[in-house]
Amino acid sequence: MTLRVRALQLASILAALGAWEGAARAGWVDPLFVPAPTAVAIAFARIGGAALAALADTLGKTAVAYVLSVVLGVAAGLVVGSVRLLREVLNPFVIALYGIPKILVLPWIVLVLGFGAAPAIFYGTIHGLFPILVLVMGAVRDVDRTLVTVARSYGATTWQLYWKVLLPAIVPSVLAGMRLGLVFCLLGVLVVEMFAGVRGMGYVMSAFANGFQAPELFAATALVSAASIAIVLALDHLNEKLSHWRG
């Protein structure tokens, strides 16, 4: 079964690429808009170095935004989730802020923070923060009460309660949030770069699109997608390693 699945996956990808190449060469699609895969590959070789530099720029901003959203999301989620009054009061606000498209405040963020890395990091952070916050809050609320009672009966201080019980108990949710948050952070950074960037992959892709450089645009898109998938897969791998106790 697995072999047949793999074979089917590979065959479909190859068939799609082949059909695409054929259609482009036969002139069925306008190569101005849909360049053949070989043209994309050539374009990739041409823009390779610059694209990698732009990718590094984007990923650097994403990394900062990501660290900020994980730290802030987990810390705030722990505090808000474990204090009943805070949780009940803030929950609807958090859900609403999570759901509202943040793109609406993007113009204002750019207005205040200007062009460059700051708005990208800020916007990426608020994108990544909320999924993590929502998951962590829920997880803290749902921690088995018995475990908290056990810890109290063994004389746990407040600090020990957070550090030795609540935090380890929510590890699976934190990891799930980290996976979601990563994609959100990258999305936020790319959006800012497209909207008001002067550097980075989002800016590069917008520039290619505005310049009708389809092969280069496709190559850049493929590069960002591949990088994103690779990072998420790596995170999944880490996830499996860290949650071995769940079985």
Binding site: M1, L8, S12, V183, L187, L217, T221, S225, I229
Partner: peptide
Amino acid sequence: RLVGRAYGPMLAALYAVPAVVWYPSLMLF
């Protein structure tokens, strides 16, 4: 079953890509 098991994970992998990367291509097109 076979089709699902082959394309399901591919769809999920695409889901791991921030969707906005497709927007410039759509704008071009």
